[in-house]
């Protein structure tokens, strides 16, 4: 009984198809982009307002708290995938049978699909990250709020 040679190609393709699938609906993509930028902007505004009207903690300057909360928000968005739900749905409607009828490792298929989604979400937060970096740097240069 000869062992089958493991190939990465199908899983790379699954990840690529997951990215393509996520990018299918233009409206979803652009509203998603705008939503992330707005969320980052609002988050920043909340912290700026809080620091402007209250005494700031000594070891936690404004730029640090904005950086921390922005990264936390963006990480949450990037990793916001639910493969458990996808698996449940495929089990529930029986379509998982077609996955098992293919010469693939099904858990790896779900992993690759999830990886594709994460990569797509990561690309989606890049504009928000750029916006956040430039606005925080400008504020650091222009105002004394961070000190």
């Amino acid at each position: 009984m000869s062992a089958r040679r493991f190939r990465f190609e199908p899983y790379v393709e699954f990840a690529k198809r997951a990215i393509a699938r996520e990018a299918t609906y233009r409206f979803d993509v652009f509203t998603g982009l705008a939503s992330v930028v707005i969320r980052v902007y609002l988050l920043r505004m909340v912290w700026v307002a809080l620091y402007a009207h209250n005494a700031a903690p000594r070891d936690l300057p404004l730029h640090a708290i904005i950086t921390y909360s922005t990264i936390a928000l963006l990480m949450g968005l990037v990793l916001d995938i639910d493969q458990t739900r996808a698996l449940y749905e495929r089990l529930h409607d029986g379509s998982i049978a077609t996955d098992f009828m293919k010469p693939i490792k099904v858990p790896l298929y779900f992993f690759a699909d999830g990886t594709g989604e994460v990569l797509f979400h990561a690309a989606l937060v890049v504009p928000a990250l750029c916006f956040s970096c430039t606005s925080t740097c400008r504020r650091l240069r222009c105002s004394g709020l961070s000190r």
């Binding site: 190609e9 199908p10 393709e13 198809r17 699938r21 299918t24 010469p103």
Partner: peptide
């Protein structure tokens, strides 16, 4: 693949098999 063109589904099957 529901959201992808037929050609891309075939490409994926080519890679799988």
């Amino acid at each position: 693949y529901w959201d992808l063109p037929l050609r891309e589904s075939f490409e994926l099957l080519r890679a799988i098999y």
